Simulated scan of single mutants.
Amino acid sequence: MNTEKSKSTLVVVDYCRNCSKNLNPNAAFCDQCGGKIIKNRITTKNLLEDFNDRFLSIDGAFPKTFIALYRNPEDVIGGYINGVRKKYMSAFGYFALSLSIAGIYVFILREYFMDSIFENISSETIQNQDKAQLDFVKQLTTGINEYQALLSILSIPILAFISRIVFWNYKQFNYLEHVVIYLYAFSHINLTVYILAILTIWSPSIYIFFSFVGTIGYVIYLCYVLKRLYGLNFKKLILKTSLFALIGSLFFFIISIIVGIIMFKMGMFDELIENIKTANQAKT
């Protein structure tokens, strides 16, 4: 019969709690399902170790992945597509980590710095109509930040679809493999931008500068990744980037119209419209 004894912090385990297979006395992992055998009772240390193993991989995989995605993105992304699973963090693990850092950033921005940043943008000479528009931008920014995780999740399949269209004459990667490309690339630039944002958010002027640079960084890094993965020369890179921008702009225009209609139906423009009317009446 399987038994389990507790002795201080040590738990005697003679079968796998994941698949119920009998274990060798000194087994560290189950040879049936590969699950790690937990022999210590729960402590702060092993909770942090479990969090690290599942999400951060600070023991080597995360820093190795982060650096390699700048130096040799084709090694990380192409390796994962070709079956490499242990050398670097997985695509979904890296994406989950980027969402976690984004959540921390959004919390810090919303709770401590949102007002000061918009106060820095505004001035005493701002007109009422401009003030109404600025308030609307603030509300829109807050809304985007609130749904940042959802927007990121939705962006990946859209970017992958556009990329598959742009590279229709290349058979190297299918649609799902393009999803993997953008899970890594989108997550990587997000991690970089959000870490820089958290470090500079104390200064509105520096924060705004890095936000602007970050927007350009998205485009440059995606071009860099695609160039390395497909081995594009400069002429082909410009052609594919221009086509991507054209198709992406069309998608953005259509999505913006749909979102705008939804926002209008929800009454999100009512306050802005009323403030503009009030400002125009005051002028006359």
Rank of each mutant, 00 (worst) to 15 (best):
K138H: 02
L150V: 13
Q139W: 05
L191Y: 03
E74D: 15
Y94R: 06
Y170S: 15
K265L: 15
L134C: 03
A27H: 03
R110W: 01
S98C: 08
F107T: 06
T141H: 08
S211V: 03
A160L: 01
G93V: 00
F92W: 04
R85S: 07
T215P: 09
I195K: 00
Y80H: 12
L243M: 11
Y94Q: 03
D59A: 07
C16Q: 00
Q129E: 13
K265R: 05
M1C: 08
N22F: 05
L199Y: 03
N40R: 12
A91S: 11
Y207P: 09
N72F: 10
L48C: 13
K5W: 01
L229K: 00
K235F: 10
K171A: 12
K87N: 08
P25F: 10
S100M: 15
L150T: 07
Y184K: 00
I208Y: 05
E177W: 01
R71H: 07
L196N: 09
F95G: 00
A96E: 03
I144E: 09
S205M: 13
L246Q: 01
Y105M: 02
R110L: 07
I181N: 05
Y221C: 10
T43E: 14
S249A: 15
Q139V: 08
E4F: 11
K171T: 10
E271Q: 15
L246S: 08
Q139P: 04
N169Q: 14
N233Y: 09
A27G: 04
V137A: 06
